Amino acid sequence: MKKIQKLIQWIVLSFFGSTIFFVILYRFVPVPVTPLMFIRCAQQVGRGEKIRLKHHWVPLDEMSKYLPIAVMASEDQRFLQHHGFDVVEIQNAVEERMAGKRRRGGSTI
């Protein structure tokens, strides 16, 4: 039983440690691939096409200064006020879940 507990602890710590590691890494290094890129490749395979993974990253300083804000606002209009955890939306989601309703929860950014 202790071996299983140690294994579970190791898995949980590895998951959270790797998550933190990649957040810090991708703060300084461009993201090589995204989940959407994998989805597009799977769609190409499904259509019988040759897989083409083509992308061109553009630095933020070469984009409009309003683009990052527009992207965040399209996902979560209060993102700049709550810094990642929209307590109001989380509370609303919990209350609606408790009432048996299903709806979208807090921010996914």
Rank of each mutant, 00 (worst) to 15 (best):
I11G: 00
G46I: 02
Q77H: 09
T34H: 06
K6C: 09
V31Q: 04
K101Y: 14
G17H: 01
W10Y: 12
H82N: 07
L13K: 04
R40A: 12
D76P: 00
E75G: 03
V23K: 15
Q43E: 15
H56N: 08
L60C: 03
I8W: 02
W10C: 08
N92K: 13
G105L: 12
V58N: 00
F15A: 09
L36C: 04
I109W: 13
H55D: 10
G17C: 05
T19F: 13
A42F: 11
V88R: 11
R47P: 14
L67V: 12
M72Q: 13
V33C: 01
K6W: 13
R103V: 14
F15T: 07
R27V: 00
F28N: 05
V58Y: 01
R97T: 15
K101C: 11
Y26E: 01
D76T: 00
T34D: 03
R104S: 15
F22Q: 00
G17Y: 01
N92D: 11
A99T: 04
I24Y: 12
M63F: 03
I109Q: 15
F16M: 06
I11A: 02
I11H: 00
I4C: 03
A93F: 13
L13Y: 10
K3H: 11
Y26P: 00
E62K: 04
A42V: 05
S18I: 06
G46M: 07
